[in-house]
Computed example of a mutant assay.
Amino acid sequence: MIDRVVTSGTFSLDGGTWEVDNNVWLVGSGREVVVVDAAHDANAIAERVGDREVRAIVCTHAHNDHIDAAADLAALVGAPILLHPADQVLWETVYPDLPYTPLRDGEVVSAGGVELTVLHTPGHAPGAVCLHAPELGAVFSGDTLFNGGPGATGRSFSSFETIIESIRTRLLPLPEKTVVHTGHGDSTTIGAEAPHLQEWLDRGH
């Protein structure tokens, strides 16, 4: 079972602020779920969760628009927050004193019989991760891969070369039919994005 809640707010970094709509994904069953990226509106997310148990709130990275509802949601549903520790510097810009549970590459987070394998995919942010659910034929890509190309790398703590390497080595080997559920905008598939790798490389240089 995959649910999506779209929430709206702002993304701020390097002195700029932008209006954004974020995809919040609920993955699991009718009894329990994992929340992927608690963005902007803890009450709206909790309402969609309903009476299901939240096993974990997983942050694909620590840009403020992906974590700004994490603390409030954790308090509402009593779930731990999981984040790759390479994003500590970004996390502290929002939560200087809030602890989280460190995520590791290859770790499996599960809810309702669905297993999500953590793929560390730095580039958009140092601690960016994607979550691969083979039984669902899906990967939750955060801001690493979008419908149309890689996530932005023009701001602090990001690297175009690194994100391309992450996509090439961690995402493109997944089955072509794998649905890519993104942090913003429409979903896509690995097969739809794979042919464009050379275009991204050419565009980046």
Rank of each mutant, 00 (worst) to 15 (best):
V114F: 00
A46Q: 12
R168D: 09
H196V: 13
Y95H: 10
V5Y: 00
A70K: 02
W91A: 05
R104C: 04
V94E: 15
I57P: 11
A74K: 02
Y100C: 01
V77E: 11
A152I: 10
L131Q: 08
E199P: 00
T169Q: 14
T182L: 04
L172M: 12
Y95W: 11
A111R: 00
I190Y: 07
D3H: 09
S166M: 05
I57R: 05
E176Q: 09
E32S: 14
A138Y: 01
L119K: 15
V35I: 13
I163L: 09
I81W: 02
F140K: 06
I45W: 03
H124E: 10
A70Q: 06
G148F: 03
P175F: 08
Y95C: 02
W25D: 09
L98R: 15
I190Q: 04
G106M: 01
N43I: 15
I57T: 09
V58M: 07
G137M: 10
L13P: 01
G78R: 00
I45L: 09
Y95T: 03
R31H: 09
T178H: 03
H124A: 12
L73P: 12
D105A: 15
G28D: 02
L197N: 06
K177H: 10
E165D: 14
E92V: 11
S158Q: 11
A42M: 10
D105Q: 02
R4Q: 12
A79R: 00
A56D: 06
G151R: 00
L201Q: 13
Q88N: 12
G137Y: 02
L90P: 03
L174C: 05
H196K: 13
D51E: 11
W25Q: 07
E32T: 03
V54F: 10
D105T: 03
D97Y: 13
I167F: 00
V129Y: 04
I2R: 14
G127F: 08
G106A: 03
D37I: 00
W200R: 11
H181I: 01
P85G: 12
H63F: 06
V109I: 15
L103R: 00
E176M: 04
Y100Q: 00
R203Q: 09
E32A: 14
D186V: 08
N64T: 07
A194L: 05
V77Q: 11
E53A: 14
G78W: 00
Y100V: 03
V36L: 13
H66N: 15
I45N: 12
F146G: 08
R203A: 11
V33P: 04
M1G: 10
A46C: 13
D51Q: 14
S166D: 04
D14Y: 01
T188Y: 04
T182Y: 02
T117V: 13
L73I: 08
G112T: 05
D186T: 07
A74D: 14
A138M: 12
V58G: 10
G127R: 04
V94W: 01
L83G: 07
G185P: 07
R31W: 06
A128P: 05
V109M: 08
A56W: 02
A152W: 06
V54N: 09
N22A: 14
E135W: 00
D97L: 14
G204I: 07
V180L: 11
I190W: 06
A44V: 12
S187K: 06
L26W: 00
L136N: 06
